[in-house]
Simulated scan of single mutants.
Amino acid sequence: MTVRTFAVHIGVSDRMVSNWEAGGVGIAPRPSNQAALDTALSCAGTEAHERFAFLITEQAAAAEDQRTEILLAADPLQFVRHPVDGKLMVEVPEGIFLGGDAGSTTWLPGFHLDVFPTTNADYFRFVSATGYPPPQHWEGSRYPESIFDHPVVWVTWRDAAAYAAWAGKVLPSSTQWEKAARGTKGNIYPWGNNPTAAKCNVSDSGIGHTTPVSRYQSGASPFGAYDLCGNVWEWCATESSQGRRELKGSAFTSPFVRATPAAFNDASTGMCDEDTGFRCVAGHL
Rank of each mutant, 00 (worst) to 15 (best):
M1P: 12
R4S: 10
V8W: 06
I10Q: 06
V12P: 01
R15Y: 10
R15F: 10
N19G: 00
G23E: 07
G26M: 10
A28F: 10
S32W: 09
Q34K: 14
A35G: 10
D38A: 04
T39W: 10
A40I: 07
A40E: 06
S42D: 02
E50D: 15
F52V: 04
A53Q: 07
L55K: 08
A61W: 12
Q66E: 13
L72D: 11
L72W: 11
A74F: 05
A74P: 02
D75L: 12
D75C: 11
L77H: 12
Q78W: 09
Q78C: 11
V80H: 11
R81V: 15
R81D: 07
P83N: 03
D85M: 10
L88S: 12
V90S: 12
V92T: 07
V92L: 05
P93M: 03
P93Q: 03
G95T: 03
I96K: 15
G99A: 15
G100M: 05
L108M: 02
F111D: 09
F111M: 12
D114N: 15
D114W: 12
P117H: 08
T118H: 03
T119D: 05
F124G: 11
R125W: 00
R125V: 04
A129Q: 08
A129P: 06
G131K: 00
P133S: 03
Q136S: 15
E139W: 07
G140T: 08
P144T: 00
H150S: 00
D159V: 00
A160Q: 11
A162M: 01
A164P: 07
A164Q: 04
W166R: 12
A167P: 08
P172H: 13
S174I: 07
S174N: 05
W177V: 04
E178G: 09
A181L: 06
R182V: 01
P190T: 08
T196G: 09
A197M: 00
V202Y: 03
G206W: 05
T210G: 01
S214T: 10
S218I: 04
G219N: 01
A220F: 06
A220T: 08
A220R: 15
S221Y: 12
A225P: 00
G230M: 01
W233K: 05
T238W: 01
E239K: 07
E239I: 13
E246H: 12
E246R: 15
K248W: 06
K248A: 15
T253N: 03
R258M: 14
N265L: 13
D266I: 06
D266Y: 10
A267F: 09
A267V: 04
M271P: 03
D273S: 15
D275N: 02
T276C: 01
F278H: 04
A282G: 09
A282T: 08
